Simulated assay, not measured.
Amino acid sequence: MPGRFTTRTLNISTGSAETVTDLTHACEQFLQEAAGGRDGLLNVFVPHATAGIAVIETGAGSDDDLLAALHTLLPADDRWQHRHGSPGHGRDHVLPAFVPPHATLPVISGRLELGTWQSVCLVDTNKDNPNRQVRLSFLG
């Protein structure tokens, strides 16, 4: 049987603070419907110039550590050429070079194959845009 492609868009509200939002449960729910027990690939994509997708441990401080590291690498100050929105917003446009806007993950027997502590997360440092879309696509 040839592979099938299924896609869905999630609407995520990230609020007015920098966030790491765990999408793992939403990915698993999507795969329950889309994968039908098949092997394949899940692609997670955020179509925004100021957000990214990370596979990282959450709940044990790693998500806060990621935001702290991004503050060190990409300070929210006036050094950025890209200047509009909140002060330091130019750094948000550099974020996808460090946290890419996509991840492609293996699906085995319809289940997302992550390591024990891994989660799929939306990383959003842009306080000016609290409404995000994330596209989930399964090919299998």
Results as ranks from 00 to 15, higher is better:
41 L>F: 13
23 L>H: 13
125 T>W: 00
136 L>Q: 14
61 G>P: 09
75 P>Y: 04
103 A>Q: 12
94 V>Q: 04
69 A>Y: 00
127 K>H: 08
115 G>M: 05
89 H>C: 02
88 G>R: 01
133 Q>K: 10
45 F>W: 09
25 H>S: 13
61 G>S: 10
19 T>K: 09
59 G>L: 09
77 D>M: 08
18 E>Q: 06
5 F>C: 10
99 V>W: 00
22 D>H: 04
109 S>G: 09
96 P>Q: 08
3 G>V: 15
118 Q>W: 08
72 T>S: 12
117 W>T: 05
103 A>R: 09
9 T>G: 15
52 G>P: 11
136 L>T: 15
31 L>R: 04
91 R>E: 01
138 F>D: 12
36 G>M: 08
123 V>F: 03
102 H>T: 12
68 A>I: 03
108 I>F: 06
136 L>H: 11
65 D>S: 06
19 T>A: 12
140 G>E: 04
12 I>T: 04
54 A>S: 11
95 L>M: 14
80 W>L: 08
64 D>V: 09
30 F>T: 04
99 V>M: 03
129 N>V: 02
53 I>Q: 07
33 E>P: 00
19 T>G: 01
22 D>A: 11
46 V>Y: 01
73 L>A: 14
83 R>C: 06
99 V>F: 03
98 F>L: 11
140 G>L: 11
90 G>F: 01
48 H>Y: 15
38 R>W: 03
86 S>W: 00
44 V>L: 03
68 A>E: 12
46 V>P: 02
9 T>K: 05
36 G>W: 05
122 L>T: 03
91 R>P: 00
120 V>R: 10
116 T>A: 14
26 A>M: 14
104 T>F: 05
13 S>Y: 13
46 V>L: 12
125 T>K: 00
6 T>N: 10
57 E>S: 11
70 L>D: 03
35 A>V: 11
46 V>R: 02
72 T>I: 07
109 S>Y: 04
120 V>S: 13
64 D>Y: 02
12 I>M: 13
79 R>S: 06
118 Q>R: 10
101 P>Q: 08
72 T>F: 06
101 P>W: 02
133 Q>F: 04
37 G>D: 05
41 L>S: 14
46 V>H: 00
16 S>L: 06
97 A>W: 03
130 P>M: 09
123 V>M: 06
36 G>Q: 10
30 F>G: 13
80 W>H: 05
68 A>F: 02
35 A>K: 13
128 D>T: 02
37 G>K: 08
121 C>S: 09
17 A>H: 13
64 D>Q: 14
54 A>V: 05
19 T>M: 01
6 T>I: 08
